[in-house]
Amino acid sequence: MYTEKSFVLKPADADKKWHLIDATDKVVGRLATEIANVLRGKNSPKYTPHTDSGDFVVVINAEKVKFTGNKWNDKVYYRHTGYAGGLRERTAKEQLERKPEAILMNAVKGMLPKNSLGRKQLTKLKVFAGSEHAHSAQNPVEYKF
């Protein structure tokens, strides 16, 4: 009896491309979903869940993202200093003023696997607040969605 073998992509065979995404007037959650899919490789027919088969993503204009509803005032970002009573919080508006890249990084991080593979995939995300980026040598192709 003939059984068809499943395709398994080896990490060395993964052809990693560079994508450029302009975040101007994009809703954070919807944009983060697309970015997470590209980082994981789910947009490719060669997707293998346990392999890092995704592409690199460069995001520009991160300070021009949008939230729906009243999230600019209601959404809170937490971090801890490591000391007792060291819980710090910022609203989304304060986060945009101080670290606009962190808004998108946190959203994408929450959509990736919570293991060593997810941490490795997150390193392929490069977020820049302005329209200039440091990865022009990689010739990123504009990603349409």
Rank of each mutant, 00 (worst) to 15 (best):
F128P: 01
V141D: 00
K71I: 01
S116G: 04
F56W: 11
E94G: 04
K16Q: 15
R30G: 08
G118W: 02
Q121F: 02
Y83F: 12
F145L: 13
A134N: 13
L125N: 06
P49A: 09
A137W: 03
S116I: 13
E89H: 06
F56I: 09
G85K: 03
K66I: 10
V8I: 14
E4L: 14
T68R: 01
K42D: 14
P140Y: 03
M105V: 11
V57I: 07
T33Y: 03
K114P: 00
G69K: 00
A36L: 02
T123H: 05
G41S: 09
K16E: 14
K66D: 10
A129R: 05
I60H: 06
E142V: 12
N115C: 02
A137V: 15
R119N: 09
R119F: 05
T3F: 11
Y2M: 15
L96G: 09
Y83K: 14
D52S: 12
P45S: 12
L125I: 08
Q121S: 11
K71F: 00
D25M: 13
Q138M: 14
V58G: 00
A62N: 03
N61S: 09
R79I: 02
M1K: 07
G54H: 07
K124E: 08
R79T: 13
Y78E: 07
A129H: 01
E34P: 00
S131K: 14
I35N: 02
T24W: 02
K42P: 12
H19E: 07
K120M: 12
A14P: 01
Q95D: 07
L9C: 10
L104F: 06
Y83I: 10
G130L: 05
